[in-house]
């Protein structure tokens, strides 16, 4: 695997710190978070996990700055921005996928783009419009264009939904190998996947439980390493117990 074609600017020491975060949606009687604390001090592929409605997307948006918490502080100590991407994003309808990627690829990252297009299984789709793609293909194209941008932290909100298992696995291995110095926060409902591929799993438990988030170590599996199945099963059990 080649290192990312990013240059010196992307060599970052990412850190996310959320302190005493409180958030309540307008009209809601109960807060989604109350005094939530979270700290991520190592780069790598981490997960945000939890049942539907527990606040994974909201927490991701608070971290990325898309929404502001009612109280508390979010501190991002990284040289490059934190980007948030979600699985329903679309490309403009007036441009083909290939042309859009060509226009949004920062200078000097064409080699990385071509390599990712190939590995993500998108090479044959470059002449098509976004509306002509399947949902899985749409999500792969969307994730790819984010991976080409300047970022220290990328929050992937179900970014690989509707992508078949082998392709998803290959994409995750690719990301982990090509971007080892970045922080990824992968939102997924698949406990097997997060236990296997993620370094740490941040389990969101809701405002009524203390602590509101719990960090569970995952297997952080890579393509060139053997998988410890027993350890993975233990991680899965821990995740399920925490949730």
């Amino acid at each position: 695997m080649k290192p990312p074609d990013q240059g010196e600017t992307n060599r970052s020491a990412p850190m996310i710190a959320c302190h005493n975060i409180t958030f309540r949606y307008p009209g809601s009687e109960t807060p989604l978070f109350e005094g939530l604390d979270l700290k991520i001090d190592t780069p790598g592929f981490h997960a945000l996990f939890g049942p539907s409605g527990v606040g994974k997307t909201t927490l991701a948006k608070i971290i990325s700055g898309d929404i502001t918490a009612s109280a508390g502080q979010v501190s991002i100590e990284t040289p490059l921005p934190c980007l948030y991407t979600f699985n329903r994003e679309r490309l403009p309808g007036w441009s083909s996928v290939g042309r859009h990627l060509a226009k949004t690829t920062p200078p000097g990252r064409e080699t990385l783009r071509d390599a990712l297009v190939d590995r993500f299984g998108l090479a044959t789709l470059m002449g098509l419009r976004f509306s002509q793609l399947s949902m899985g293909q749409c999500n792969r194209v969307n994730l790819l264009r984010y991976l080409l941008q300047d970022f220290s932290i990328l929050i992937m909100d179900e970014s690989l939904a509707n992508v078949d298992e082998p392709t998803r696995q290959d994409i995750l291995y690719q990301i982990k190998a090509r971007f080892p110095e970045r922080v990824f926060l992968y939102i997924s409902h698949n406990v097997v996947e997060v236990a296997r591929f993620c370094d740490r799993i941040i389990v969101c438990r809701g405002a009524h439980q203390k602590p509101q988030v719990q960090l569970i170590p995952g297997q952080d599996h890579r393509a060139d390493r053997p998988l410890d199945k027993n350890a993975m099963e233990r991680a899965m059990l821990e995740i399920m117990n925490a949730a």
Partner: peptide, 12 residues
């Protein structure tokens, strides 16, 4: 939002 988000967060 589903189209503009990418351009907004990447400053384009």
């Amino acid at each position: 939002s589903d189209i503009e988000h990418f351009y907004r967060v990447t400053g384009r």
